[in-house]
Design a protein around this nucleic acid. Structure first.
Lengths: 207, 207
DNA sequence: GACGCTCTACCTACTAGAAGGTAGTCACTA
DNA sequence: TAGTGACTACCTTCTAGTAGGTAGAGCGTC
């Protein structure tokens, strides 16, 4: 945060795109230098080491995500609509290929070879996202809009897993549409029918 | 296939473990040489290039998976039990950390930076797995054991996405149990209750 | 307002080591 | 005796990172 220069921003943006494409070992300072239009050594001026660069990048990504999710919860009161907006964001990103993958999801897949400090940041993102989703699940169950067949935090982890898996499938198939199809199926299963025993279900599945 | 020597096998086994840990760019010939106990140049004797090595590895992984899934369908007639065995396999792998990730899932995450020939193999794995799952889904729906809320191939893709996402979460959280919990929740939602209108549901959701 | 000081952003030029890969050699075995 | 599987000894290219320097902006002060 705290007003970094435009060049540093450019470096981070570029690095993020490169990580999303090929992970931590899938890019080099030379790659960034070429895209941003400066020399390798100049990147070291802004970020002394690769670990610094990626740690900063992930920390900022986490902050941005945290702020965006908090804002979403504030702007949209309906929990089901919150989830729809969340997946809608990714659907758009994948469709126009701006950022067709969550940078933390990609880094998590390489967790065993990641420098410790970066691994910690990645872990924290998973926990924060899962918590936000669990809160939405719980609210939805309370209003009777969402039907939970498991405790909220389990439903949240299942939802997150489906989102990440669907990103992967979209990439594997080379077809952005698959993301929406898979998530759509998951959400449909979650939407509570206007059933008579909604109260009973709610009682059963809230912690 | 076709009886490769033990050393070649060792190289492939080692490479697979290294890819599972850190992806295509996360390992080098030097890493393999150290583990297998031969020199870098000797690896080139068995696999002239890194692309050869990984292509062979993925092709063999696909063959093995194909054979195992065909065998599973032969040994176990009950479709729901087939799915349980499939996820049980991964649950065991993740729990004892032998191969806590599908090598194709990991490579798929880096698809944009993968050599073309390897990308093709990875894509083929996703298609084959999805097809197998869809067949199981369809059979399960026919016997009334599985409740499908979407067409079989969509349910199959959703299932596959959940499996891959759950692997990722298990890795991110550093907790093998999360895989079973997430998949368990998904399977529970799929199990049809002994309902009166099972026939009607079946009619609705088969292509 | 010219002088010097410091800081920022970038540069050229370099390094050590790791990467994938090659050439040629040797010993064992079918 | 041809083939296999390993070796040593290289090569080239790429990697992250360093050393040292330059141009210019900002700022105090004589």
């Amino acid at each position: 945060m705290a007003n970094l220069s435009t060049t540093a921003d450019d470096i981070l943006t570029c690095a993020r795109a490169l990580i999303v494409a090929g992970g931590y070992n899938g890019f080099s300072y030379a790659d960034i230098a070429e895209v941003v239009g400066i020399r390798k050594a100049s990147i070291h001026h802004h970020f002394p080491s690769k670990v610094d660069l990626v740690r900063t990048l992930v920390a900022r990504y986490r902050e941005d995500t945290k702020a965006a999710l908090a804002d979403l919860a504030l702007q949209v009161s309906d929990p089901l609509e919150q989830l729809r907006r969340y997946v809608g964001y990714w659907e758009a990103c994948i469709a126009d290929a701006t950022a067709p993958f969550c940078v933390c999801a990609l880094l998590a897949s390489q967790l065993p070879v990641l420098p410790g400090e970066i691994a910690l940041e990645v872990r924290a993102h998973f926990r924060a996202l899962s918590d936000w989703l669990a809160t939405a699940m719980e609210s939805g169950a309370r209003t009777g809009e969402i039907r939970l067949t498991s405790p909220p935090h389990v439903e949240a982890d299942a939802f997150m897993a489906t989102v990440h898996g669907a990103m992967l499938s979209a990439r594997a198939y080379g077809d952005p549409k698959i993301f929406g199809v898979v998530i759509g199926a998951h959400m449909e299963r979650m939407i509570a029918p206007p059933s008579r025993n909604a109260k009973k279900e709610r009682r059963e599945h809230l912690s």
